[in-house]
Write a protein that binds this DNA or RNA. Structure first.
Lengths: 259, 259
DNA sequence: TTTCTTGTTGCAACATCTGCAACGCCCATT
DNA sequence: AATGGGCGTTGCAGATGTTGCAACAAGAAA
């Protein structure tokens, strides 16, 4: 749409491959040296490119400062909430959103079941970390040494007969969760409540949050709840996509062709 | 230099603060809606901005990908990382790696403390330039006129009672740092956190980066931390040697494993 | 329904960008 | 020291791309 900006932005992926001097940039852009120079100057003023000692250009610091700032200001909740509501309207059960932070898993959003039977959970409250589906998902994503360290540091309260008994069992469960990409809690926290969860990932593939659908088995059986799994996973994936901004990203070579 | 590109790039930091709609962007940019629209479209085609469900714009995935590459291209990081990890394993405290670029000092790598007490810092984030040990080291290495110019241009926020008060004090501190070849920050940024740093030099003797070890004084006193200085300096020297390729390179295979 | 708000498009005026050619600087070669 | 080549930089005139306007479209609110 805007030729000048288009050209300027095309410089960035080019420099991402490695440092380049003015002439190389001009050539690969298909413009005159002086044009490339002016574009690079503008990029430079904004800190998007950096000029190293040998006068060659490479990507600049502001790029990751920007990315960093954006990530900090990005709230999963904002993005997830409408999806959670939509899911809740479809299935009727309670929907949770949780994040991992400093050895804890916290609920950060919740859409109440439309059925009168409610469960005990609250936004901001730590999750029952050894049994909840969202906790399993979030912990399963930790790098191996930390995962093990956390698992061994935890207490394993026997809420019910189905609660995770100890670190060994928990680590095995985490491995399974990691493998299959989803998690359950079948009566592990409260005897009569089942729960299925799915992961929400950021652009780098790491988990940023996890969501779950919970229902007491007086309303639906565990099997019926599990039938909702594809729906829950699709929702989680939709949130992931929106969160990481992957949606309509074109491949770099599309640009030249489209011009 | 280039108005169009200048405007387009000005949109990015604006969106980094949070999502904005067309009109907000146009207003804050001081241009007509249609102009802003075209700029945003161009940014969009390059994946630099993303349009969320509510039509508002935010920074896009490609920006993050580029930022990622930018960080990876800073190759001191590749070499330093294994050393930083090793040091962290030995002392347990948080280890930072930082570079100077365009009047800023940026963290480009960090290995977290194994203690639960963590400090507020993040890769890609600008360092508190007037107090941080790594900043003192990097600025002390600038040629005299530039060093003075930068020092006088800076603000001197009084984070704590021990923060560097003004340019004069800062220049004196830099002279000392230059002299002794290492630097400290004793409660200058956060009252309870101390920090010791050492320089990493390229083949030409100029600084290419600086590293530091930080610890809250609830864990170790300033004196205990200072006792680690020889170790920190040895680590920095090892990185310098490997980076400048002067010495028998230690363990080439470490890189692949650590990355 | 009407009324507002917000995003989008076509267009004519013109400001901005472009490519050129000449210049200057630095380094390598003689 | 002088010469020559490589590369970055600058001023300029022409023209291309960009701008702001005003009108339109679409959706939300009243």
């Amino acid at each position: 749409m805007s030729q000048t900006v288009d050209r300027a932005l095309s410089i960035l992926p080019l420099l991402a491959q490695g440092p380049a001097n003015l002439e190389q940039v001009a050539d690969r852009l298909g413009v005159h040296k002086s044009t490339a120079l002016r574009l690079l100057r503008t990029l430079h003023e904004h800190g998007m490119v950096y000029r190293q000692a040998d006068q060659r250009y490479r990507l600049g610091a502001r790029l990751f400062a920007l990315a960093q700032e954006a990530v900090e200001n990005l709230d999963v909740r904002d993005i997830a909430h409408p999806h959670l509501v939509a899911l809740n309207e479809k299935v009727g059960h309670t929907v949770h959103l949780a994040v991992y932070e400093e050895n804890e898993v916290l609920y950060i959003d919740k859409v109440e079941s439309r059925y009168p039977v409610r469960m005990y959970s609250r936004i901001g409250k730590p999750v029952a970390i050894t049994v909840a589906a969202v906790a399993k998902l979030l912990l399963a994503d930790l790098p191996e040494p930390e995962r093990r360290a956390v698992a061994e540091r935890l207490d394993y309260p026997q809420y019910t007969a189905r609660s995770t008994p100890d670190a060994t069992a928990f680590l095995a469960e985490l491995a399974k969760v990691r493998e299959q990409g989803w998690a359950t809690d079948l009566g592990g926290h409260e005897e009569s409540i089942n729960c299925i969860g799915a992961p929400i990932r950021g652009a780098d593939g790491r988990l940023v949050a996890a969501m779950s659908v919970s229902a007491p088995n007086v309303v639906v059986s565990a099997e019926e709840l599990l039938a909702l799994l594809p729906l829950v996973r699709r929702t989680a994936d939709a949130i992931s996509r929106e969160y990481s901004g992957n949606d309509p990203v074109r491949t770099p070579q599309d640009h030249k062709e489209a011009r």
